[in-house]
Design a protein around this nucleic acid. Structure first.
Length: 533
RNA sequence: GAGCCCGUAGCUCAGCUGGAUAGAGCAACAGAUUUCUAAUCUGUAGGUCGGAGGUUCAAAUCCUCUCGGGCUCGCCA
């Protein structure tokens, strides 16, 4: 909707402005105050300098042409210039009423757009080490990554969800040694893994430790548990990418020789270094250790080269804040390989602290004293976990209160939204009037009676979905969808108290449209939309 | 010491690419149901947007400095 209005404004400006004048980027906003209309534009401010007139004069001079624009009649009841220079647009009731029909006609597709035009997006997230169970932090990356992927899908992109499996390296050696030691009742080696889960695994795989491919059996077992946990959260991946494969296929060596050939490496202390400092990193980084082994970083360069080679238009990584220092070196590598750096971005998610009420829950993998993601999901359920892990900006450190998430009370925001949906379903069940499905001729639906203030506010909010999804996708911020639903729920509940729905066909259709929007957005976030509560 | 993130109501947090009078939930207080789910709604109270400068028509938002908190700084992954 915003882009549609922006286009109208731009059409008028292009016609009206002198040819040599600079046409500013047009932004359409939603005014905070209801008297200022449904949308507003600040173009008049942006033009004061080039036109040498006051914002109000400019705004006024544009009004008539805006009103005359082809599309204006269908959309707006009024367009006016505020005294300070804002141009305010008010949607016509007729347009909002027609949109109810559109919602019901588009049904599951309402809220989707074709912003991406089929461009390919790869989003890599979680990528936990296969050395133990997932924790709540992984849960956050899983949910955020999955939601961002869904946002892209809603906006018309082709999306692949990928999980990178770090199935080689010291940690894996230590893991194997630790499990074997426990299974044979020996002491765990220094720096080994001593968590309670190691015992469980040792018990489970005890009679397989002598097999030659025990390491694979072990890794597959742990990965299977991780997958199972994510499955419970509704998260699944299109692809699990093995680090080991990069080693086996010698792609790492190839990347290293490529970097060396371009003069991006040097030798020192027996190791081969990458000149990342020259490309924005604060240090140079080792690619091949003195003992001849390649580093994790070297493999990661090969992995990202591989991502580019698979032809994606957008490459997104979701990482925990504890890895943020790693970003510059990877960007340096991408630049050194002369890959289009603009396609690559990293979303850093701040960490999660678990609480029970006001008591912090300790999380230490090494001592085994930790609450796993598995435990959290089975304790409070997938819906609450997803909702709580989605509802905050990824930039914010999150305190996750297990007690609150578990409560079936009004303190718990999950129920507020789900309840609105259930309430609508209840009304529709109870209604004796069968409202038509989309098959019926939409012209026969007369919605002109929807003119109550509460009805208008609700219709207006329903119109915003597409803009909200686009904005959330552009900013990679799924929590905006949660905010939208909380607002919508509030608006709906308010409407419900003011307007009786049963026996009123127009309102039944409005409520049905509201149901569709709730369901679509809950579905986007993979939270269930209950019909009864 | 350096880098990244955060600091907004008593608590948890929103605040869109700078925009009009600073927003919600919870907690507190006062109310609402003979009618569609009270897991709901309405109202009241609560703020020097950590602090100080600067940029401009306009700053919670951008820049500099500063204070406080989290994370990171390996030839680990």
């Amino acid at each position: 909707m915003k882009t549609r209005i922006a286009e109208i404004v731009r059409d008028v400006l292009l016609e009206k402005l002198p040819k040599d004048a600079f046409c500013p980027e047009i932004s359409i906003e939603i005014p905070k105050i209801i008297d200022h209309g449904d949308f507003s534009s600040n173009v008049a401010f942006q033009l004061t300098k080039s036109l040498k007139k006051s914002p109000f004069q400019i705004a006024e001079s544009l009004i008539d042409d805006l009103k005359k624009h082809k599309q204006s009649k269908a959309l707006f009841s009024t367009i006016s210039a505020a005294r300070n220079g804002f141009i305010n647009f008010t949607l016509s009731l007729d347009f909002l009423q027609k949109n109810i029909k559109t919602i019901r006609k588009q049904d599951k597709k309402y809220g989707m757009s074709n912003l991406g035009m089929g461009k390919k997006v790869l989003i890599e997230f979680v990528s936990a080490n296969p050395t133990g169970p997932l924790h709540i932090g992984h849960g956050r990356w899983a949910v955020i990554g999955d939601d961002i992927a869904s946002l892209f899908e809603y906006c018309g992109f082709k999306v692949q969800r990928e999980f990178y499996v770090n199935d080689v390296g010291n940690q894996i050696n230590k893991l194997e040694e630790s499990v074997k030691a426990v299974a044979q009742n020996k002491a765990i080696p220094n720096d080994g893994y001593g968590g309670a889960y190691i015992k469980d695994i040792a018990k489970e795989l005890k009679n397989k430790i002598s097999e030659t491919d025990f390491r694979n059996i072990l890794l597959n077992d742990i990965l299977a548990h991780q997958k199972e946990t994510m499955q419970k959260l509704g998260v699944s991946f299109d692809n699990y990418f093995s680090e080991k494969k990069l080693h086996d296929e010698e792609v790492i060596e190839q990347v290293i020789s490529k970097l060396t050939a371009e003069g991006h490496t040097f030798r020192e202390g027996g190791a081969l270094w990458f000149k990342s400092e020259a490309l924005g990193d604060d240090k140079n980084r080792v690619l091949v250790r003195a003992n001849g082994e390649t580093t994790y970083f070297a493999a990661d360069i090969a992995y990202h080269l591989n991502k580019y080679e698979r032809g994606f238009d957008v490459l997104i990584n979701v990482w925990g804040a504890d890895h943020h220092g790693y970003v510059p070196r990877l960007k340096a590598a991408i630049e050194a390989l002369e890959l289009p750096a603009g396609r690559f971005e990293v979303i850093i998610g701040q960490l999660v602290s678990l609480y029970r009420g006001s008591e912090p829950v300790k999380m230490s993998k090494r001592t085994g004293d930790m609450v796993t993601l598995e435990e959290v999901v089975s304790e409070i359920g997938s819906d609450a976990t997803r909702f709580f892990l989605t509802m905050n900006s990824a930039n914010n450190h999150v305190n996750f209160d297990l007690e609150l998430a578990k409560q079936k009370s009004q303190d718990n925001p999950v129920y507020y939204v789900q309840y609105a949906h259930a309430r609508i379903c209840s009304i529709l069940r109870k209604s004796k009037i069968q409202i038509s499905k989309s098959k019926e001729n939409p012209k026969s639906q007369n919605l002109t009676s929807l003119n109550h203030e509460a009805e208008r506010i609700l219709m207006r909010k329903l119109l915003d979905v597409e803009d909200e999804v686009i904005a959330a996708c552009r900013k990679r911020e799924p929590h905006q969808i949660v905010n939208y639903m909380r607002d919508l729920a509030q608006i709906f509940h308010n409407f419900y108290h003011k307007c009786r729905v049963l026996e009123n066909p127009s309102r039944l259709m409005l409520v049905d449209a509201t149901r569709i929007v709730f369901r679509n957005m809950l579905e986007l976030l993979k939270i269930t939309a209950p019909e009864k509560m």
